[in-house]
Amino acid sequence: MNISVLGCGRWGTFLAWYANKVGHNVMLWGRENSRNFIGLKETRSNDYLSLSEDVELTNSLEKAILFAEIIIISISAQELRSFANQLSSLNETQGKTFILCMKGLEANSGKRLSQVFREEVGKNVNLAVWVGPGHVQDFVNNIPNCMVIGSDNIEVTKRIVQELNSDLIRFYYGQDLIGNEIGAAAKNVMGIAAGMLDGLNYSSLKGSLMARGTKEISRLVRAMGGNDVTVYGLSHLGDFEATLFSDHSHNRKFGQALVEGKRFGKLAEGVATVKALDELSKQYDVQLPICNALFEIIFENKNAEETLKDLFLRPVKFEF
């Protein structure tokens, strides 16, 4: 099968590498002047992996869409609306299957990425999300993991899983798009909180963060019409090891750098997601104490140590 990957950052390049590894013809698209694309054109490699000569590189969006039946998108979540709008002007999108491989929410509206994509591209495409735990650094060293493909059409989900399943990534069928998307985005927020706890030498509180954070997000998912049990699956709780405890996690490292007064130069999607969850908390009238505390620390310059201690050591109350 022909598969195109749009976006040649760390994860997008891995997805092209993986789709090629499991036997597909792959085209990888990147912006002509992006540092990642220029590097791949010159050396066919980045800091994490080398691409086979079989993977074709292109900076033509039209060519990438025409080439493939399945199109994987891996860009910054906050760029998705303008990017999808650009795709909507191409007639070749009709009937194609798109997979969104980002974990985020639109910061200002709180909308899920599948909603954003549908608003711009329309209903005449198949749409799925690919979420769950896994780091490029582990996969390229042949360390396997389990991930989720979710869509609102089980036949689309099954077809994608059939084409992409392997011993390296074992896929599960996601049956709750709301829960999978909110859960996947929110785990990055919990990752930032975990990094803050690490930076403050309160790492032992990460167990409380996991328990209370998962409960908090499950309440939101239920209020939005999703299944509150979904967040206890791979898209959220199952991704905590890769986000709350991993040296590879950008979100955890961002949180740690913030409380240590250092600068972290890489993309941490969870920062925009904090804004989105604050918006959803208001829209659905659901209390999100952890997300709210992070909003105060990141955007209102509240003291991180005091705010987090107040959060976790609140007055005595029943656990459930």
Rank of each mutant, 00 (worst) to 15 (best):
E163Y: 06
P144M: 06
S166R: 07
L164N: 02
G174Q: 06
A186M: 07
Q175V: 11
A186E: 00
R159D: 14
M147R: 13
Y172T: 09
S166N: 08
G150Y: 01
Q175R: 12
M147W: 00
N145C: 15
N141S: 13
D152Y: 03
C146A: 15
V161P: 01
D176H: 09
R170E: 02
E155F: 13
E163R: 09
K158M: 08
L177N: 10
G183R: 06
N153G: 01
I149G: 04
N165L: 03
N142L: 09
G150A: 15
T157E: 06
I154G: 01
N142C: 10
M147P: 00
L164C: 05
G179T: 11
Q162G: 07
D167R: 05
G179Q: 09
T157Q: 11
E163F: 05
R159F: 15
R159V: 05
M147Q: 15
A184K: 03
N142Q: 13
I154F: 05
V148A: 01
Y172C: 06
I160A: 03
S151T: 07
D152S: 13
A185F: 07
Q175Y: 11
D152H: 08
G179A: 10
T157W: 10
D167N: 13
L164T: 07
S151C: 04
E155I: 12
V156L: 11
I154M: 10
I182F: 08
A186L: 04
P144R: 06
G183M: 07
L164Q: 05
Q162S: 13
P144S: 08
Y173K: 12
I182A: 03
N142M: 12
E163L: 13
L168P: 02
N180A: 11
V148K: 00
I182K: 05
S166D: 07
N142H: 12
V148Q: 00
T157L: 03
I160P: 04
V156Y: 13
Y173I: 12
R170V: 02
I182C: 04
R159M: 15
A185N: 04
Y173N: 11
V161F: 01
G174K: 05
G183Q: 02
A185L: 03
I154V: 13
G183P: 01
G174V: 10
R159H: 15
E155T: 14
I149A: 01
F171K: 06
N153K: 12
V148W: 00
K158A: 14
C146N: 09
Y173S: 14
G179Y: 09
S151E: 04
Q162L: 10
V161T: 09
R159P: 00
A185P: 02
A185H: 09
